[in-house]
Amino acid sequence: MDAEIVVNRGGRPQAGSPPANFPSVGQFVRWLTDAIERRIMKTPKPKQWAEQEVRRLVRLARQGFGTSRIAAELGRHAGSVRRMARTLGLLLKK
């Protein structure tokens, strides 16, 4: 059954009841809350640095490799590499 659309004199749809498949406010709030909870639950925790990875980071930085290359070698994000280098007091090329 299709919802009836009432048109006023100007040819515009007139406010009326929403279509049958339109969610209620309660359904929308429940959906939004569930979506937020799913997002929070899926947020990954930062991967811990192994001692071997730290040594490799130091070695690559001393060899003059840049952040992007070191990140690719270690399989980590560039921001993670920069953060660890800063923690260790290392200077990296861009």
Rank of each mutant, 00 (worst) to 15 (best):
M1I: 12
M1N: 13
M1T: 10
D2L: 15
A3V: 15
A3H: 15
E4P: 03
I5Q: 12
N8L: 10
R9L: 07
G11F: 04
Q14S: 11
Q14R: 12
A15I: 06
P18Q: 05
A20V: 13
P23W: 02
S24W: 05
V25W: 05
G26F: 09
F28E: 15
F28D: 11
W31V: 01
L32M: 11
D34P: 02
A35D: 09
A35G: 13
A35M: 08
A35C: 06
R38P: 02
M41L: 08
P44Y: 01
P44N: 03
P44I: 03
P44W: 05
K45I: 07
K45R: 15
K47Q: 14
K47P: 08
W49C: 07
E51P: 00
V54G: 00
V54S: 04
V58E: 11
V58I: 14
R59C: 02
R59M: 13
A61G: 00
R62P: 00
Q63T: 00
G64R: 00
F65K: 06
G66A: 05
T67E: 04
T67S: 03
I70L: 09
I70S: 09
I70C: 07
A71F: 01
A71Q: 00
L74R: 08
G75F: 02
R76Q: 08
S80A: 10
S80F: 03
M84W: 06
A85Y: 08
L88R: 12
G89Q: 04
L90A: 04
L90Q: 02
L92T: 01
